[in-house]
């Protein structure tokens, strides 16, 4: 792990247990985040991206969900091995999280001020007064002009966009090294989305926090991220820089995702879509997880699961099309 790596996830595996069957929802996921970097995790619903983030925070819903393998190195410590006490100090302090549902993520019975202050007092051991002051500053930073009034307001008096700002203010108030944003703009309308994205971009520079941005929206990815991890069926299928992903996607799934967004110069009547849906964890195909929906599926894809290979120093892909030896066969198949 190099000096400037904040988070290093290695072979993380998280499963849900029902009765006696084990359903892997995060399967052998590896990636790392550098200091100040914004990494996007992209995938459809059910691809395991949210579970990956909850696994990092060790907040996988128990008792059914459990991290069954792998390591999550943060600050040189493997979070998977830490006891609860250590995790209490990490969450909300070193690693913060913003959730998808701003409407329901704030507690309806406490004022905004109370909810911002409690975390500051808890982690920084400061007085209520100081916490209040920091809270007001944080609210101003995220764009509230009447921060003093907002502190006294209850969440139900704020709009979705305002609540998400509050969540961001809360998440950043302890100056975390890593901010995990789980679909931060999905529930908001488009103009508010742009504001929130601008805000996050501005603040990540200002606070020098690394960000893991979880989304299914490639537009958001293009706005914010520097690197992209594409997930499918609980696995990382491709990892690349933002330029490479948009210019030259390697995995057929990434290609499919990109083809399904409208292009400004195109005259397409209908958008391309990837046929079928993400297989559920109890119904994964043999071989490659994507084989049932892949336009380039080959014989080997149905038999053996591909591994994540290093394409070059900054790119990884999990596909036989890009593995030496089987590649040629794939190309033939592609043209036929």
């Amino acid at each position: 792990m190099s000096e400037d790596t904040v988070l290093d996830v290695r072979h993380l595996k998280t499963s849900f247990f029902s009765k006696k069957t084990e359903l892997p929802v995060v399967d052998d996921v590896s990636f790392s985040v550098k200091k100040g970097e914004t990494l996007a995790i992209v995938g459809e619903s059910g691809s395991g991206k949210s579970m990956t983030s909850l696994s990092i925070m060790r907040l996988v819903p128990s008792p059914n969900g459990k991290i069954v393998g792998g390591e999550v190195f943060f600050n040189g410590k493997d979070l998977v091995q830490q006891n609860d006490k250590t995790m209490y100090k990490v969450r909300g302090n070193d690693i913060s999280m913003i959730f998808q549902e701003p409407m329901t993520s704030l507690n309806p019975v406490y004022t905004i001020g109370e909810q911002i202050r409690e975390q500051l007092i808890y982690h920084q051991k400061i007085s209520k007064r100081e916490a209040h002051q920091i809270g007001i500053e944080m609210l101003q930073t995220v764009g509230f002009s009447r921060a003093n009034d907002i502190m006294k307001d209850y969440p139900h008096r704020l709009s979705g966009g305002m609540r998400q700002r509050v969540m961001i203010a809360m998440a950043l108030s302890n100056n975390p090294k890593l901010l995990i944003a789980d679909e931060p703009t999905t529930a908001l309308d488009v103009t508010v989305q742009a504001q929130i994205l601008d805000l996050m971009r501005k603040l990540s520079k200002e606070y020098d926090s690394a960000i893991i941005l979880i989304t299914h929206d490639l537009g958001v990815v293009a706005e914010l991220a520097e690197r992209v991890v594409v997930m499918y069926g609980g696995q990382v299928v491709e990892e690349a820089s933002i330029e490479d992903i948009f210019d030259d996607p390697l995995h057929p799934y990434t290609e499919g995702l990109l083809n399904s967004i409208p292009k400004i110069e195109g005259t397409q009547e209908r958008l391309d879509s990837i046929p079928g849906t993400v297989p559920t964890p109890d119904n994964l195909p043999v071989g490659c997880n994507f084989v049932t929906r892949c336009p380039y599926a080959m014989e080997i894809c149905k038999q053996e699961e591909p591994t994540l290979i290093d394409k070059d120093s900054s790119r990884k892909v999990r596909c036989y099309l890009h593995e030496e030896g089987v590649k040629n066969h794939g190309q033939q198949h592609r043209s036929s």
Binding site: Y88, S105, H123
Partner: peptide, 11 residues
Amino acid sequence: DYVRTARAKGF
């Protein structure tokens, strides 16, 4: 969700 938020805050 707000209970999850409280956990994510480290309480």
